[in-house]
Nucleic acid binder design. Sequence first.
DNA 1: ACAGCCATGTAACTCGTTACATGATTAC
DNA 2: GTAATCATGTAACGAGTTACATGGCTGT
Lengths: 190, 190
Amino acid sequence: MGQGAPTTTSYALLGLLSFDRDTVAAGEPGLTGYELKQRAYNTLRFYWVSPATSQIYTELGRLQRLGLVAADVRAGRRTTRRYRITPDGTSALRGWLTTAEIEFPVLKHPVALRLLLGHLTGPDEVSRMLSDYVGQLDQRRAELRAVRASLGDDPRMGYPAMVADWGLDYYRDELRTVGRLLRRLESAPE
Amino acid sequence: MGQGAPTTTSYALLGLLSFDRDTVAAGEPGLTGYELKQRAYNTLRFYWVSPATSQIYTELGRLQRLGLVAADVRAGRRTTRRYRITPDGTSALRGWLTTAEIEFPVLKHPVALRLLLGHLTGPDEVSRMLSDYVGQLDQRRAELRAVRASLGDDPRMGYPAMVADWGLDYYRDELRTVGRLLRRLESAPE
DNA sequence: ACAGCCATGTAACTCGTTACATGATTAC
DNA sequence: GTAATCATGTAACGAGTTACATGGCTGT
């Protein structure tokens, strides 16, 4: 990895850097890999992926080689690098957004997979599993609520807020659907 | 691949073979790799993955080496193999279902990712993209409806039917949410 | 002094994909 | 006869992960 063309994840990370275009232009420094990792954790995690730390650094290296990001290197006892998107990076990102094909979302849902195989475990085990899932969903939703709250109504964060609200709707609907499934399992003449 | 321990996808495929336990015990042959691929396309695709054909054969080879499936080899001009789950395979699958940790679902949502970066393209482009997505969602839903209909109310297919209904609810809710987002974009004082 | 966070990177490995290669059988 | 579908497999590659390695800075 790190060779060749950017992937969707590369563009996703580049996109996270694009939110600092203005503040960086006004003289503020960019983000360290560490900080970018945290931003990815707070946003991308809910509807894309949360790349491993090591991958963040690899991707930043690739984007830099391609001229899509630039780094402020601060040599000290320990060298730290702050990355910002370049004008080339912004155009590349815009080009990708407008021309690349948009794939249909992919869901990897271990809970649904286990429900499919319910005939091997029986309704009690399945109910237990779904109840566990409800607990996890509640927690996830609380995490996303906190993220959403941190965005406030800052108009510059309008799109991120929409995405967060989308996610919150999704978790609410999923909880509702799982609740229906649990009731259906109870009343099933198994 | 094909070495070492089964992955979640291995168990998913093994699980698909588990639906034929009874008919196979009654003397019917198992499934070819080709047929298993189709079954995966009709079920797993909607909430797990649709493995490449080449991977199906690789996984079957691994499961066989592990003794979790057995093959009826029919040598002819062309050798064909029909696979069925073994008793060991059934216990391994049950063991996995009851003891392996259940991960939280992962969503890879390119549409949400693009919405996040709407500040780079503007509300018109974002609306166009979301409308495209609505069309794709409609189509996907129609495909899953057909799968659901093919399950009928056969009690042996009760769990697969629940999973399909779950998916249909998800598509319905997603369409609703995207509709709301489209209206929000229209009325936004961007 | 010690914990916890900030910060960076390499190496080995796994999962899964695409590309390639082959050929039989069935329906028109 | 020819197109579509049935059927099987290998090789090369890519994207991302975990494990490993290192060390500074900050608060208690």
